[in-house]
Design a protein around this nucleic acid. Structure first.
Lengths: 215, 215, 215, 215
DNA sequence: GATGAATGAGCCTTCATTCAT
DNA sequence: AATGAATGAAGGCTCATTCAT
C-alpha cells in the first residue's frame, strides 16, 4: 500500500514543484529540450522564472524530471504485470492499461517521439527501462502460448514496431490526426476504439488461446 | 523526356543553394524549426552563416523551402497515379513508390512528424497538399473494389492512421527502432519488408480482387 | 508645490531606467539612431546590454523615449507661458528660459538637428509639438505689439529660422564652435551672451514697446 | 586656365568614380559615416558593391573623398578672393558666391554639420582649411575698414557663429525648415533672400563704407 | 572594368541563469 | 518560498570587405 506516500503532507513547495513539472511536460512536448524557452514554462506554470531554479538546477534537469515522472508510472505498471498471471488475457489487459495511462498523459508520448526523432541522449534509457521490458514481456507471452512461434521469427520487428506505432504513435501525432479528421484522437471513443484494435491484434498473436476462448 | 530540364545550367549558386537545402533538411529534422541553430546548418553545409542569407531571407524561409522540396516530389508522384489505372495493384504500387521515396529522404518523414508533434503551423498544408490526397485516393480505390466497404465505415480512421504509422512513422522514428533492435530501419531489407507488409494490408483491403488474383 | 511628485518612491528600476535614458541621450546625440550601437549605450550607462532590453523593447523605442524626455519639459515650459502675460518682456523671458533649459540638456538640441539633417521620421512631431507652438507664440506676440507688422511679412521665415539657428543651433553645433574658438560654447558666460543677443533681437521686434521702455 | 584639366579625356572609370562620389555624398549626408551602409551607396550609384572597392579602399576613404570634393571648390573660391580687392563689396561678393555654391551642393553643408554634431575626427580639418580662413578674411576686412572695430571685440564670436548659422546652417537643416514652412529652403527665391540677408548684415559691419555707398 | 558569390566580424536581441531582497 | 533585477553567452541576421570570373 502506498497510501502513506499519497497522504504525505502536501506542502506548498510540493504543489509548486508539481505545477512546474506539469507545465514543463506540456511545453517540452511541443518544442523539445533545445526548442523550449524556460520563460514559456514559467508562464505556463504561473510562476516567476527564478522560481524554476529553486526546484530544478537547470532546464536540462527539469527536462529529465519530466521524463522520469512520465516513465515511472509505466515502469510500475509493468512491474505489477511481471509478477502476475500470463496469457493473452493478461497481455491484453496490460496494453489496455498502458493505453489508458498514455491517454491521461498524452504529452509523454510526444516527448518519447521527440527523443526518437532528434536521436536524443535519453532515448536509450527510455527504450531500456520501459519499452523493451514491456514489449519483450508481451512477446515472451506470445511465444510461451504456443509451441511454434505465433509468427515467423523474422516478422518480430514488424510486430514490435506496429505496437509502438499503434500505442505511442497514436498519442504522439494526435495533432496530425486531428487535422486530418477534424475530430479528437484523445477522445474517449477514439482511444477506446484504438485500444480494441490493439486487443484484436494481440488476440491474433495467440491463435490457440484465442480459439480456446471462442470455444 | 525531361532531359532538357535536368540539363539546365547548374550554376555555382544553384549548387550552393542545393547544398544548403540538404544540410538544412537534416538539421531541421532533428531539432525542428525553433530548436535549430542556423550555425548548425551552415556548418553542415560547409558554408559561412552569412551565405545562408544570400539564398534565404530567414531561417523560417529556409525551413519552408525544405518542406516544399520534400512535399513536391510526393505530390508529383501522386499526380501520376491520379491519372493512371486503378485497383489494388495500382494502389499497392503507389504505396511501394511512396515507401521507396521516403526511404531516400528519411528526414522528410521526421519533419512531418515534428510538425505534428509541435502542432506546427505548416501541418495543415502538409495534410491537405499531400497526405489527404494520397490516402483518400487509396480509400476511394478500396471502396470502388467492392459493393460493401471492405471494412466497417467506422474503422476508416483506424485504417488511415495505420497506414500513416506504417509508412511515415517507420522513417520518422527509425532512431527508436535502431536503438531497440540494433539494426537499421533504413536498410534495404527492412524497408523492403516494411513495404511488403503494407502491400499485404492493402491486399486485405481488396478482398474480391485479391481472391480473383489468387484464382 | 510638487514635492509629493518628486518624493515618489524611486525604485532601483527607476534609477536604472533613468541612467539608461541619460546615457542613451548622449550617445544618440552623437551618432543618431542608425549610427548608434546599443553596446555603446550600455557601456555609457554602466549596465549590461541585456539590461537595456528590460526597460525598452528595442533600440528604436529607446530613441523615442529619449526624444520624448527631451521634448516634454519644453512643451511644459511653453504651456506655462501660453497662459501668462504678454509682450516683449514675456517673450524675452520665454526665450531666456528655453536657452537655459537647452543649456542644461545640450544633447537634445543635437538630436533635433540630427533628425533634421537625416530627414528622420520624428522630425514632423518635433516641429509640431514644440518648435511651431513656441515660435508662433512669439510671432503672434510681436504682431500684437504693433499695428503694422514689425517686419515685412515676407521676412517672417527669416526671423523664424534665425531664432532656431541662434538657440537650437548654438547648442547643436557647439563642437564646431569649440573647435573654432577653443573655448566652450556651453560655458555660462557664452550662453549668457548668446541669450542676451537673442533678447536684443526680440526687443528689436517690438519697436514701440522697446521705445516705451527706453523712455 | 584650367581648361585643359576640364577637357581631360573623361574615361568610363572617371564617370563611375564621379557617379559613386555623388551618390556617397547624398547618403553620407543623411546617415553620417557610421550610419551609412555601403550597399545604400552602391544602390544609389547604380553599381555593384564590389565596384565601390575598385575606386576606394574602404568606406572611410570614400567618406574622406566626399569631404575633400566638397571642401576643395570652397578653398579655391577663397583663394581667388584672398588675392583680389577688398572692402565690403568684395566680402559681400565672397559670401554671395559661397551661398551660391552651397546651394548647388546642399549635402555638403549637412556633412559639415554632422561632423560638428558627432564631434567627428574630420572637424578640425574642415575648420582649419576652410571655415577659419574664410571667416577671418571677412573679419579682417571689417576691421580694416574702420579704425575702431565695427563691434565690440567681445562680440566677435557672436558674429562668426551667426554667419555660420545663416550660411551653412541654412542648408544643413533645410529639411527642418521645409517641414516648418512647407516650402523649399533650397529654392532659388529662398536662397536669394537668405543671401540678401547675409549681405545686409555684412553691410552693417562696414558702417563707413556702407554710408559712403549710400551717399 | 564590373560583378556574383562568399566570408569574418559585428549588430540587435534573447536566452538561461544568478543574486539580493 | 518567491521574485524583481541583472548579466554572460548565444542566437539570428547584416555589415564591410574580398576574390574568382
Amino acid at each position: 500500500m502506498n497510501q502513506v506516500e499519497e497522504r504525505a503532507p502536501v506542502s506548498r513547495a510540493d504543489l509548486t514543484r508539481e505545477k512546474i513539472l506539469e507545465a514543463a511536460e506540456v511545453v517540452f512536448a511541443r518544442r523539445g529540450l533545445s526548442g523550449t524557452r524556460v520563460r514559456e514554462i514559467a508562464e505556463a506554470a504561473g510562476v516567476n522564472v527564478a522560481t524554476l531554479y529553486i526546484y530544478f538546477p537547470s532546464k536540462k534537469d527539469m527536462y529529465e524530471a519530466v521524463l522520469e515522472s512520465g516513465v515511472r508510472p509505466l515502469v510500475e505498471l509493468m512491474s505489477e504485470f511481471a509478477a502476475g498471471e500470463r496469457g493473452s488475457r493478461a497481455t491484453e489487459l496490460l496494453f489496455t492499461r498502458v493505453m489508458q495511462h498514455l491517454g491521461t498523459r498524452p504529452y509523454f508520448s510526444r516527448l518519447v517521439y521527440l527523443e526518437a526523432i532528434s536521436e536524443g541522449s535519453h532515448l536509450p534509457e527510455l527504450v531500456d527501462r520501459w519499452l523493451r521490458p514491456i514489449l519483450e514481456h508481451a512477446l515472451g507471452e506470445a511465444r510461451r502460448g504456443t509451441t511454434a512461434p505465433p509468427w515467423e521469427e523474422s516478422l518480430s520487428p514488424l510486430v514490435v514496431t506496429s505496437f509502438i506505432h499503434l500505442t505511442l504513435g497514436h498519442f504522439a501525432i494526435a495533432p496530425l490526426f486531428r487535422e486530418f479528421f477534424g475530430s479528437d484522437p484523445l477522445s474517449d471513443e477514439w482511444i477506446t476504439q484504438q485500444t480494441k484494435f490493439v486487443a484484436t491484434l494481440i488476440r491474433q498473436m495467440f491463435p490457440q488461446i484465442a480459439e480456446a476462448q471462442q470455444a
